[in-house]
Design a protein around this nucleic acid. Sequence first.
DNA 1: TCACCTCCCACTTTTGAATCGT
DNA 2: AACGATTCAAAAGTGGGAGGTG
Length: 498
Amino acid sequence: MLQEKASAVADEGVTVAQSGGLPELAADSSHLGLPATPNIPHNNEVDQNIENIKVVLHERELWKKFHEAGTEMIITKAGRRMFPSYKVKVTGMNPKTKYILLIDIVPADDHRYKFCDNKWMVAGKAEPAMPGRLYVHPDSPATGAHWMRQLVSFQKLKLTNNHLDPFGHIILNSMHKYQPRLHIVKADENNAFGSKNTAYCTHVFHETAFISVTSYQNHKITQLKIENNPFAKGFRGSDEGDLRVSRLQGKDYPVISKNMVRQRLISSHPHLSGKLGAGVLSGHPQVHSHYQYDSGVPLPSSDSQEPLSTPFPSSREPSLLYHCFKHRDNTRHLELGCKRPYLDTAPAAVSEEHYFRSPPSYEPPLLSHSYCGEALGSREACMYGGMDGEAGAGGAVGSEELPPPSLNCNMWASVQPYPRYGMQTVEPMPYQPFTAHFTSTATAASVVPHHSPSMQRPQPAPPVPDLVSFATQRAFPPIICIFLYIHDANLPSKAIML
DNA sequence: TCACCTCCCACTTTTGAATCGT
DNA sequence: AACGATTCAAAAGTGGGAGGTG
């Protein structure tokens, strides 16, 4: 059976989750609006839901095009959407069970990059990580039938470099490499998750990795964006030249863009490439120094000034990494169970037992560090969801509306991640992708609903449940209240509520 | 001087309200 | 009156360029 799955999934270019957690609730109780029976014995139906969930990245070929060139994503103070947008096709869910879909974006490594000589080079150590934020899909929680009915789009997700962003956008550092991750969480009877036996799975498509920039560095990426993003249609050139540019400059004749100048110059004078990349043309009034000529954009390996042959090395992992775990008991210990990605190993080697996999080479050895964010000295905009109506006008959460000390994001950020949280692991596990968010790194991960910031306001700390509670309260639409809890034997339980 | 960032621009697509026809 | 189709204006989303900052 596993082999069949592996084969099928391989055809789709992704690997798929295999394992869920021990269920706490009757599978169908949530949609019935009935209180589920807690702590019921192991329920295979629910487990299978998690195990069987398959996620396929939409427009994977487009993502691959960008990936091959070295995807760049613009980040702005006001927030910028991702393009290509993150859309997935989900199958294998229990149609009646409610799930919550969310995305986070984690540092892919601990390097800062610069674009030099038409290549992305390591420029030093990464800036202290921004506080991790989660983007919860607007439809969450929704039934499996809902998610499977059509593409699940995260196109409204926005990226910002504003450390104090009040809008709930995902905060990133410029010139750093990041990896988006999709998490599917089974909602409990309260349309929430985080109770004792919450199960979830994580999907990572490595072709969605990108480097955040404030202006495009690689001309090839610029062209891909213009060619494929409808909003950038106005920048699409023609054989007559860059008409848009000529219009912008008030010319009644075509003006060749800088990119075109550079590209054409390079193509006809390859020997100039290095000088051009170094900004030789910057003195030209039409050519800004940060423009680069067209070519592949290798990203560096761990070896700092050595560019790689490909922007985002694909050898490290199959297309999709999978990780899943569940909360298993009341002991405030976290047991991590991972199934090996289908493509990660021979199907025959996949057992039914949980095990822990090694991290991909680029996946965060620094993941925890990233989310630990000791540099979060500034008061980060912790987003809190409130109830519509009761919340009043609300508005952006300003610094004066920061949560009480026990909920302070900085406090979260300062807490060391795994393994200090006493998570019970079967064996050493350097790689702990999702746990970093719902447990250890959740300390730095403020959970941000997508909803209007005007509806967000601080809420009193809810009762502290065991281990981790990540709850959404659909009962108060359209606000999703999310609670993050963490327990460390050495630290007081903490929570982030949204 | 340089790399990076911010703001503004013109253009396009998207969205939603208003209008009209059936 | 209800519903669907169409129209139109406002809002939102683009990359580029100029200029600012450290």
